[in-house]
Every structure is written in C-alpha cells, then in structure tokens.
C-alpha cells in the first residue's frame, strides 16, 4: 500500500461523505457545506493526479464562487423544505434502486478494463496553457461568450421588476 493510495482513500472518504451529506442532510445549509467538503476533497484528488492548476481552479471556482453564490441565494430566498409528499418514499426507493444499478453497471464496466499505470512524466500547467491558447483558443473564446450570455441571462431572470417593453421594435 503506497502513500498515494492512503491519501486517495482519505480524500475519497471525505468526498463520499460529503456527497451523502449533500443528498441526505435535512437542512439546506448543511447540504451546501457538505458540497463544499466534496469539492475540497476533489481538489485534493486533482493534486494527487499531478494537476495543481486544476486543484487551484477547483478551489477558486467551485469552493469559492459557486458555494458562496449558493449560500447567498439560500439567504435571499430563505426556503423551508416541506415534508416529503406521500408518494415520495416510493420514488426514493425507485431512485435509490436506479442509482445503485447505475453504479453497478458503471463499476462493472470500469472493473473489466485495464489501463496503463500512472506515468511519471506529469503534464504541467504550461502544457495546459499551451493547448488552451492554441488548439482550443476558439472554444476558449466561445466558453467566455457563453459565460457572459449566462450572466446576462441570470441578471434578466433575477431582476426585481421584469420590464414589459423589453423588445423595443421588431425589425
């Protein structure tokens, strides 16, 4: 049992516990906190994969921005979760069965395959930058545009007073 394996199991345990907490926690705040734990553990796993840039991004984007955003919305809407509806328990049973079956299928597929061992030569942030700004520069720009459009969309959706005369004139 290598050191990396030990760390893997440690991080994996945190991630799984966080995921379970996210799904099962009674209070939404706890769910968000559990999400944060999972995201943090995933960042650690990225480090284990030798991708420090991804780990940093994971912390910035998910751990920072997304979690804080969700918490803000939680504060803004102050939702109260109702009691499960009568049919909910059966739905949960079916969903649980489906999820387990899905996992079984995935795991059996994965288990049947063999892959090369982790190579020593680990790709660096530099190679990532090289590929992002050369071969994938167009998708990169499109992704930026998508983000901008999504932001504008969010503002329009979440605006206090929806303006009735938005479409000024259809040419």
């Amino acid at each position: 049992m290598t050191v990396s394996l030990v760390f893997f199991y440690l991080y994996a345990a945190v991630a799984i516990a966080g995921a379970l907490g996210l799904v099962l926690a009674a209070k939404l705040v706890h769910a968000v906190m559990s999400l944060f734990a999972t995201l943090f553990a995933t960042a650690a796993l990225y480090l284990l994969l030798g991708s420090e840039f991804l780990a940093a991004m994971q912390l910035f984007v998910y751990g920072g921005a997304v979690t804080v955003l969700v918490l803000f919305v939680l504060m803004l809407t102050s939702p109260t979760e109702q009691a499960p509806s009568p049919t909910a328990s059966r739905t949960r049973l079916v969903a649980a069965f489906l999820s387990v079956a899905f996992f079984a299928v995935l795991a059996s597929t994965v288990g049947g395959a063999t892959w090369a061992p982790l190579s020593e030569q680990v790709h660096t942030t530099e190679s990532l930058a090289r590929i992002l700004f050369s071969r994938y520069v167009l998708p990169f720009e499109v992704a930026g545009l998508t983000l901008t459009i999504a932001l504008i969309g969010s503002i329009v959706l979440a605006r206090e007073e929806p303006d009735d005369d938005v479409g000024e004139e259809a040419c």
Partner: peptide
C-alpha cells in the same frame, strides 16, 4: 461513478 450515482439520486429525489 459513486459520486455520480449519489448525485443522480439527489437530483431524482430532492424536493
């Protein structure tokens, strides 16, 4: 896969 299936369960059942 495990994380995915847990998330799937959450999507299917959350109210």
């Amino acid at each position: 896969a495990l994380l995915f299936c847990i998330g799937l369960f959450g999507v299917l059942t959350s109210r």
